[in-house]
Nucleic acid binder design. Structure first.
Length: 581
RNA sequence: GUGCCCAUAGCUCAGUUGGAUAGAGCAACUGCCUUCUAAGCAGUAGGUCGCAGGUUCGAUUCCUGCUGGGCACGCCA
């Protein structure tokens, strides 16, 4: 499938091979190695790595192509580099293949595929963070899946990650819900559907009966003042909601390190307000208490005219708590782009309060989910429940497994169809949501969600299952200490060269908070494997399980490494690889 | 009105500190199962990178303006 080299801009400095290219350039030019960006050339046949000579040419006042030719003239093969050729202003390197095969196989076997830039550093990631008393709907998938992927990526890179579910469990909304419940009640046992219905009805009747809004506000005031009845109802709603959320998180395999809603910061409100007042930041505006910020047309509201706090106030307390508790290197908030203004103001307010660590806080925004071209809204009724999508996807995959077995007249190697279908189906939905850039808006479309061919999570699972199948069929045929010099086919080299990039892709995904980098990388790796595999369809000598024992062992080692990287990469995205489909 | 984001093939998207001939998937068309899993592989076709300027040896990429779309702009979160 994917066969372009999409990540030409990616530097591979952490591998000794890319470093060797830069070192050679440095020696040949007397410039520091760091001044050379090591890239991949646009096409495979041109070389394994490429370095442009633009900066060097400028430093010497010469034509880049001339400089490239001069540099190449100084090249002599080394343990890692086989050749260097000038192509216009570029120097293209071919690697010594044996060491690359060995590097990939050893790293995969040892489980040391990723560099560890995160050692001794903590990253807080606030993600998913749904409002209680509402269902987890399809649009929650974005924060949940992107946040989880980032958590997995940073864990892979050696960071200590604190995944935080900052539940929306405080605020006027919850006062309205209590008011609605007091007014109309709900059948026992109460569930999220009933709570959501109460809220929708309340908002609806509020349009014609403005008194309701005041009732809702009054109940929130009581809640914030510690009224026993209000607290008991709120606690009940929260428990019911969490019970439902937990079943969906279990489907996704997500466990949070901290489940701490907005309500947890309610006791801190007086202290936060006192602190900001002491710093002279708080002013009054139309009955509310606000902070004026440089470059902002509107101030940030801290306390309403009713005397209740707002989410900005609680976010200040939460940010302080996270810093004081974790001393994070980065504190990420995976929240939709619509809240960009809120976060911009929050960082400014924290900076104004003198917290140097405010610069470590980042909003990681993502685009909207639309259904039928419209923004989803619980109140508007155009919601699709997340669990329904997952169940539908799992059912669809289960059917596909059966159909595949029939169509190909083979016996299934799947031992647990239901379990496999769930991993593949849910994984496919997750993958589809991670594949494009975060900030793009996405349209919900059943057909797109269920797509099982082409660039999809299913394609990765299929490639992984093929690796697993081959290794199963190899049985006791060992491939430890295989003679990797037997790997001479172009398809084998393509695989190894791709595996070499894995660590860089993870680093880049982490730096930019862009899981889609991993998605596209894995599609390419799976594509390389599929071509490697298919070469054996017409020619038995090209199969992994070929006649020659030494070649077979070497190919098995490469297959094992590929399988390991596929599974590892899928895990970074929150997907669980299956052994058969 | 102000601010932020987006615009690449019929559709959905990659292309990320400016670099070599702009690439995939879907849809269309053509091949490949005497099969290490055809949920796959190979191929054909499909582009004035929204428009106009600017910077540069070089711009899909950076800057300005314009057009079109999205989102956000005080007591919800």
């Amino acid at each position: 499938m994917l066969q372009c080299d999409r990540f030409r801009g990616a530097m591979s400095f952490h591998t000794p091979f890319a470093a060797a290219c830069a070192d050679f350039m440095a020696r040949a030019t007397d410039l520091p190695a760091a001044s050379f960006a090591v890239d991949a050339p646009p096409r495979r046949e041109m070389g394994d790595f490429a370095v442009g000579c633009f900066a060097a040419a400028k430093a010497q006042g010469k034509n880049p192509a001339v400089v490239a030719a001069e540099i190449v003239a100084k090249f002599a093969p080394t343990d890692l580099l086989a050749s260097a050729t000038a192509a216009g202003p570029f120097v293209n390197f071919q690697l010594q293949r044996g060491p690359v095969f060995a590097y990939c196989v050893e790293r995969a076997a040892a489980g040391t595929l990723l560099p560890q830039p995160g050692a001794d550093q903590t990253i807080c990631i606030d993600y998913s963070s749904p409002n209680i008393s509402k269902h987890l709907a399809f649009h929650h998938i974005r924060s949940t899946v992107i946040g989880h992927a980032l958590a997995q990526i940073f864990r892979g890179l050696g960071y200590r990650v604190i995944g935080i579910n900052h539940l929306g469990d405080w605020g006027t909304t919850h006062g309205m819900l209590i008011a609605a419940f007091k007014k109309w009640g709900a059948p026992e046992p109460i569930d999220v559907t009933a709570l959501n219905a109460l809220y929708v009805r309340f908002r609806d009747e509020m349009k014609t009966n403005p008194d309701l809004e005041n009732e809702g506000r009054a109940w929130f005031k009581k809640l914030e003042d510690g009224d026993a009845e209000a607290r008991a109802l709120w606690q009940k709603f929260r428990d019911v909601s969490w019970a439902e959320f937990e079943t969906v998180y279990a489907m996704l395999g997500i466990k949070f390190d901290e489940i701490r809603g907005e309500s947890a910061y309610e006791p801190d409100m007086p202290r936060v307000m006192a602190e900001l007042r002491d710093k002279g930041m708080v002013t009054e505006s139309q009955g509310a208490q606000v902070v004026e910020l440089d470059g902002e047309k509107t101030p940030m509201l801290l306390v309403t005219k009713d005397g209740t706090t707002l989410y900005a106030t609680r976010d200040i307390a939460a940010a302080q708590y996270r810093w004081n508790t974790y001393h994070f290197a980065r504190s990420l908030y995976v929240v939709d782009r619509g809240q960009a203004l809120h976060f911009r103001q929050l960082w400014k307010a924290l900076a104004k309060a003198g917290y140097a660590w405010s610069s470590k806080c980042e909003h990681v925004p993502f685009g909207l989910v639309r259904i039928g071209g419209k923004k989803t809204s619980t109140r508007g009724g155009n919601v699709v429940l997340l669990k329904d999508v997952f169940n539908e996807a799992s059912d669809e995959i289960a059917e596909r497994i059966q159909a595949s077995v029939q169509n190909n007249d083979r016996t299934s190697e799947v031992t647990d169809i239901a379990g496999t279908a769930q991993k593949v189906g849910i994984g496919a939905v997750m993958f589809a949501n991670l594949m494009s850039q975060r900030e793009k808006d996405v349209d919900f479309d059943w057909e797109k969600v269920m797509a099982t061919d082409g660039d999809s999570g299913v394609y990765l699972q299929y490639a992984h299952a093929r690796c697993a199948s081959i290794l199963r069929k190899a049985g006791s045929d060992g491939h430890a200490n295989a003679d990797l010099s037997k790997l001479t086919q172009p398809g084998e080299w393509a695989l190894a060269r791709r595996i070499l990039d894995y660590g860089d892709m993870a680093v880049r995904a982490g730096n930019n908070c862009e899981p889609h980098v991993i998605c596209h990388y894995l599609l390419e790796l799976a594509g390389d494997f599929s071509r490697f595999y298919t070469a054996g369809n017409g020619d038995a000598t090209l199969r992994v399980l070929c006649e020659d024992g030494h070649t077979r062992a070497a190919r098995l080692a490469l297959t094992e490494a590929t399988k390991t990287v596929l599974a590892h990469g899928m895990a970074l995205l929150g997907l669980q690889a299956v052994e058969a489909v």
